[in-house]
Amino acid sequence: MVHTEGCAAAGVAGIAGRMRELDSRWPARDGVAVFNRVYLAVTEEIGRRIDAGEFPDPRAATVLDVLFAGRYLAAVAAVDTGARPPACWRPLFQYRHHPGIRPFQFALAGVNAHIGHDLALAVVDSCRALECAPADLEDEFDRVGDILALLEERVREELMPGPDLLELADPLTHLAGAWSLDRARDAAWSAARVLWRIRDLAPLADEFTERMDLGVGLVGRCLLTPWS
Rank of each mutant, 00 (worst) to 15 (best):
F68L: 11
F68A: 03
F68V: 04
A69G: 02
A69I: 00
A69T: 01
G70Y: 01
R71V: 02
R71G: 01
R71M: 04
R71F: 02
Y72E: 04
Y72K: 04
Y72M: 07
Y72D: 03
A74N: 12
A74R: 12
A74Q: 14
A75T: 01
V76K: 00
V76P: 00
V76F: 01
V76S: 00
A77D: 14
A78W: 00
A78M: 07
A78H: 03
A78E: 07
V79A: 07
V79F: 03
D80L: 00
D80R: 00
T81N: 07
T81D: 08
T81W: 00
G82F: 06
G82N: 07
G82T: 08
A83Y: 06
R84D: 15
R84T: 15
P85K: 02
P85R: 02
P86C: 10
P86G: 09
P86M: 10
P86N: 11
A87F: 11
A87C: 13
W89I: 14
W89P: 10
W89Y: 15
W89Q: 11
R90I: 13
R90E: 15
P91W: 06
P91Q: 09
P91T: 12
L92E: 02
L92I: 06
L92K: 00
L92N: 01
F93Y: 15
Q94A: 15
Q94W: 08
Y95F: 15
Y95I: 02
R96Y: 05
R96F: 05
R96K: 14
R96W: 05
H97M: 12
H97P: 05
H97Q: 13
H97G: 10
H97N: 12
P99S: 09
G100E: 14
G100V: 15
I101N: 10
I101D: 11
I101A: 11
R102T: 10
P103F: 12
P103L: 13
P103R: 09
P103W: 12
F104M: 13
F104D: 08
F104E: 11
F104K: 05
Q105W: 13
Q105K: 11
F106M: 09
F106C: 11
F106E: 08
F106D: 06
A107Q: 03
A107E: 04
A107D: 06
L108D: 10
A109G: 11
A109R: 03
G110S: 10
V111Q: 11
N112Y: 05
N112P: 06
A113N: 03
A113L: 04
H114W: 06
H114G: 05
H114Q: 12
I115F: 09
G116R: 02
G116T: 10
G116V: 08
H117R: 11
D118T: 01
A120S: 14
L121C: 05
L121R: 02
L121I: 08
A122L: 09
A122S: 14
V123E: 04
V123M: 12
V124K: 00
V124F: 01
S126M: 10
S126I: 13
S126N: 11
C127T: 13
C127N: 10
C127V: 14
R128C: 09
A129Q: 05
A129E: 09
A129R: 03
A129V: 04
L130I: 09
C132W: 05
C132I: 09
C132F: 07
A133E: 15
A133I: 14
P134K: 09
P134G: 12
P134I: 13
P134H: 11
P134T: 12
A135V: 13
A135N: 08
D136M: 08
D136R: 06
L137A: 02
L137K: 00
L137W: 00
L137Y: 00
